[in-house]
Design a protein around this nucleic acid. Structure first.
Lengths: 248, 248
DNA sequence: AAGTGGTCTAGACCACGTA
DNA sequence: ACGTGGTCTAGACCACTTG
């Protein structure tokens, strides 16, 4: 009941249900970390069987948008959960272990989008951006220098102090900050990886010699509907770490 | 009917079915490219409902071990299919397009496993290996130098001529060669990526200056049951290409 | 027309978490 | 005891491929 009267009818039912659930998520009807209605309830609401709702939820779980907990319910995925906080961190040390990073912010300013960033974020060249630079330390060693940019329109009222408090005092990640303060939920990302030499500035930040080979990773992060919302360039020293990828 | 009398009974049924199907695949009961029995037939064979077989097959499809074709049947995945031949090639050019590689083999010999390779392949140090070196060209440019090693025991009778004929005359990949000639089906792989400088040899093969930064990718490829069967080190020039990764 | 995978339903029972 | 997700079944009908 309580019919969502917008029910398209050309796709498989479970696909339509998937879209309806995704829309509710994107519109903030159900907040990160909160439970969504039970399968039976959604089945009634959409006028389909429980099995159809189940298949829709199954796929959204595989896409990391929802999390099932047997006996409790189905929850909106969040970057604040232990275990998913560093979902996008692909670095491991030479013993094949993950290490949890410590951030030091070294820059915060506003700028205009150049052609490359504008193209990646699908915004107009010259749009206002928020730019942050930071160094990530793993086991006390500087390993990553990040240059991170987002459309300023998405982060109204952001400040250097706010970011540092969230990340350092509150032990959050940037993605949990976007989620909790700006209603932006990062769902997926693309990374393009190349190799380059450390210049003087990078060498300083990463405590390596000028000319050391680094991984250069350009990441574009997406929210619902594959909308790009964050661009970043990461420079990684691979003296003691590597980037790990699983191919299927 | 025709009961597989080995039917364990502690896991979810569909998991057990998954394992039985996987076993049949690993044992070569159904060959790459061939159709497996229909869902109804498997349901009879294992004494479960069609829905349960369906769920097992669903997961194996997601793991790239099977391929469904509506109206025709379910088929054993193969590296000879157009579209899946270069499943593991993560390189794109600067216009974000895949390019199909051309291989030139530059080395073929037998050697003994050093400690690192032995650990990755889970074999004894000093075991006999087959080692191949090649250069991959993309759009006519040398981009990748590969050093590839497998346990010699898996590739009885292999020769440089055989490999070159399969790859160059027959337009196959190494993985389709393993599959068609040695009953080894590569299912998944891990890659560990670092950055390094081109030495004289690499600079020669890749037509770059000594000291050019390169991606260094250590890959371990697995067959059924996550058994490692191939180790390779790839050196990639990122002047005109990058490594692309999707994070979910 | 027959056979295959693809979707959808309705209902049963199990396993887990909470009160 | 109850509500949740997790598994399994049986049967219906649709969509695609082949003969």
């Amino acid at each position: 009941m309580i019919a969502d009267n917008t029910k398209p009818n050309f796709l498989p039912l479970y696909e339509q249900i998937k879209q309806l659930i995704t829309r509710s998520l994107a519109q903030g009807e159900w907040q990160p970390g909160a439970a969504i209605p039970s399968e039976m309830e959604l089945a009634r609401r959409y006028g389909v069987s429980q099995g159809t709702v189940r298949k829709a939820i199954d796929e959204l779980v595989k896409e990391n948008m929802l999390v099932r907990r047997q006996g409790k319910g189905t929850f909106v995925a969040t970057h604040s959960d232990a275990g998913t906080t560093y979902r996008f961190l692909r670095l491991k040390n030479l013993q094949d272990k993950h290490e949890y990073p410590h951030s030091t912010f070294v820059g915060f300013r506003r700028d205009k989008a150049d052609a490359q960033v504008a193209r990646r974020l699908e915004i107009r060249g010259g749009s206002a951006l928020v730019c942050m630079q930071r160094v990530l330390e793993l086991s006390g060693r500087p390993v990553v220098y990040d240059d991170i940019r987002l459309p300023a329109a998405l982060l109204k009222g952001i400040s250097s102090a706010l970011v540092e408090e969230h990340v350092n005092a509150f032990k959050g990640t940037l993605y949990s900050l976007y989620e909790s303060h700006y209603q932006i939920r990062i769902i997926s990302a693309h990374e393009r990886i190349r190799a380059a030499l450390a210049d003087e500035q990078l060498a300083g930040y990463l405590n390596v010699a000028v000319g050391t080979p680094l991984l250069v990773i350009e990441r574009v992060a997406f929210t619902y509907k594959n909308k790009p919302v964050e661009w970043r360039m990461s420079y990684v020293s691979t003296e003691h770490h590597y980037y790990f990828d699983e191919l299927n």
